[in-house]
């Protein structure tokens, strides 16, 4: 049997110490309490801080248990709760842009399930799509989530992806390229990559701790979603980003 890893043992001791302390502790206090050299204690604390397990008091500079540790226990966000939190804001997005709005969550490695759908506000006949499963690689909603998913590089690097239209991105490597653009500008798009005659813009939804829990997006005819050069209109993307931010705010209030 392999031996134990000393630095992890020490990190555990630091966490236990902070958890049991009634007040935030300084580096020297921690080092003394655990008989560690100050430099070693500092390294451990900085590492725990970087992963969110330890938080630093901004005024005193002392350390306490971080919210990341508390959240380890939290169950994942309920999809129906996500819909309830989002509803006011997705309605407003549809009313502002005149397009249909959806929220999707990743339910299998490359599968996105629609958990909320607001009709395009033109009172035409439309079918409720809640529960519909979409290929994540071929729609804006899916790309917005994949861009921040830790498994995406491994999953996509050598993947051949299913085509749905001549415009579907079928090479995993090209998709990874697109995902890095998504991360740079904060929004994802698809133009007739899943359905002919439909284009979409989507933005990831983050929970109060910053984790991506799904994506919100609008979809409509390329003539309205895109400019003359068939590029999605950045003005619409701004509305979607505002919506995602508002939903994050609502999630934070609900979790209080």
């Amino acid at each position: 049997m392999p031996g134990t890893v000393q630095s992890i043992e020490r990190a555990a001791a630091v966490l236990r110490l902070l958890a049991q302390s009634a007040r935030p502790l300084g580096v020297v206090e921690i080092a003394n309490a655990l008989s560690l050299p100050k430099g070693t204690a500092h390294g451990i604390i900085r590492t725990l801080h970087s992963v969110g397990f330890v938080a630093q008091d901004s005024r005193s500079g002392r350390y306490r248990i971080g919210s990341g540790l508390l959240r380890l226990h939290e169950p994942p966000l309920d999809h129906n709760e996500l819909r309830a939190c989002a509803m006011n804001w997705t309605d407003t997005l549809a009313a502002r842009t005149g397009e249909a709005v959806r929220i999707g969550v990743l339910t299998a490695p490359l599968e996105l399930t629609v958990v909320h759908h607001v009709f395009r506000p033109d009172d035409s006949v439309q079918v409720m799509e809640v529960g519909r499963v979409l290929p994540a690689h071929a729609c804006a909603l899916g790309k917005a989530v994949l861009a921040y998913h830790p498994d995406s590089p491994a999953l996509l690097r050598d993947a051949a992806l299913e085509p749905f239209t001549p415009r579907t991105v079928t090479s995993g490597r090209s998709l990874l390229g697109q995902l890095s653009t998504v991360r740079e500008r904060g929004w994802a798009a698809d133009v007739e990559e899943f359905t002919g005659g439909e284009a979409g813009i989507a933005v990831p939804i983050r929970d109060h701790g910053g984790a991506v829990v799904g994506a919100v997006g609008l979809a409509g005819a390329p003539q309205t979603v895109c400019d003359g050069g068939r590029n999605p209109r950045p003005r619409l993307a701004v509305h979607v980003m505002e919506t995602a931010r508002a939903i994050t705010g609502e999630l934070a209030i609900r979790r209080e």
Partner: peptide, 13 residues
């Protein structure tokens, strides 16, 4: 009456 113009269907079951 003009307010009716703001009513739009968001969902239908």
């Amino acid at each position: 009456r003009g307010l009716r113009r703001h009513w739009h269907r968001a969902a239908r079951w």
